[in-house]
């Protein structure tokens, strides 16, 4: 990192599940106010990396600093510290079925910060407006919304407490191209508006190029390339090149076993 202190600093991060070594020494840092997108194939460890930083998974070894504080010990106070700093948009939106949309958006305010329902609802409606949803939508249940609307609500929930860091897990997965672009625009717009640092993981290259200040590629548990989006086409890395152009042939071999073959 240059002269600026990194908002997120990861060094030598390892995580295994049994014999499956998912993360094999990740080194990564993100400057304040910047948007980093981590790309990589399915099963490359992107989600594990994100969950480790969020304190949802305990890493085996390595250091992880969030806003200068080492949170790799995974203690309760570390997790609380990270939760207070961050907002997260989950791949499947992860909205609470039993609550209305506005209660979902205001969940942290209602149950984390114990604010009044009136104040929390006002804030939730404001956040819904920021992602293009009306107050009437706030009274609905998540099951009554389309996939695109659920993503918007999830984004509204992530930004409701004005977090310093935002995480996006596959924000456009399962959406049509137009709705994907709407979500990408909202992400760029909201991240800039609240001045947050953003870390996204995706394998949607269009989305990555749109929301990233920098892109890093994760392959076999390590970062193999990092650079600005406009250098992605000429990365000089054959694995990045194969991934970006979606070619089956190349140095990245997918683990596919056919029936009848060993």
């Amino acid at each position: 990192m240059s002269e600026q202190t990194a908002k997120i600093e990861i060094s030598g991060l390892h995580k295994s599940f049994g014999a499956n070594h998912v993360l094999r020494g990740i080194d990564l840092d993100v400057a304040p106010g910047k948007s980093l997108v981590v790309i990589g194939g399915s099963g490359s460890g992107k989600s594990v990396l994100l969950k480790s930083v969020l304190g949802l998974i305990k890493p085996d070894r390595g250091t992880m600093k969030v806003d200068g504080r080492d949170v790799a010990r995974h203690s309760a106070s570390d997790k609380k510290f990270v939760a207070e700093q961050t907002g997260m948009l989950f791949q499947g939106s992860a909205l609470f079925d039993s609550l209305t949309v506005w209660e979902n958006v205001a969940f942290r305010l209602l149950y984390g910060e114990h604010k009044s329902r009136t104040k929390s609802k006002d804030k939730a409606i404001d956040c819904l407006a920021q992602v293009g949803l009306t107050a009437e939508v706030g009274e609905l249940r998540p099951s009554e919304l389309s996939g695109g609307m659920q993503k918007r609500v999830s984004l509204a929930r992530a930004i409701a407490a004005d977090p310093q860091i935002l995480f996006f897990d596959e924000p456009t997965t399962g959406l049509d191209p137009i709705m994907s672009d709407v979500i990408n625009n909202l992400i760029v717009d909201r991240v800039k508006a609240i001045g947050a640092t953003a870390v996204s993981i995706t394998h949607d290259m269009k989305s990555a190029c749109k929301i990233a200040d920098e892109i890093a590629m994760l392959y076999q548990g390590v970062i193999i390339w990092r650079g600005p989006p406009d250098e992605l086409e000429d990365s000089g890395n054959p694995m990045v090149d194969q991934f970006v152009h979606g070619r089956a042939d190349g140095p990245i071999q997918m683990q596919v076993r056919r029936y009848g073959k060993k």
């Binding site: 969950k51 969020l54 304190g55 949802l56 997790k79 609380k80 939760a83 207070e84 961050t86 907002g87 997260m88 989950f90 791949q91 499947g92 992860a94 909205l95 609470f96 079925d97 039993s98 969940f107 942290r108 149950y111 984390g112 910060e113 929930r157 407490a161």
Partner: peptide
Amino acid sequence: EIGAMRVTQQIDAMSTLSVNPFRY
């Protein structure tokens, strides 16, 4: 109900929203 919340990441989401899902 809790199992469905677990597999749809709602419990993880609760943790990221500064609410202890076990207590809630």
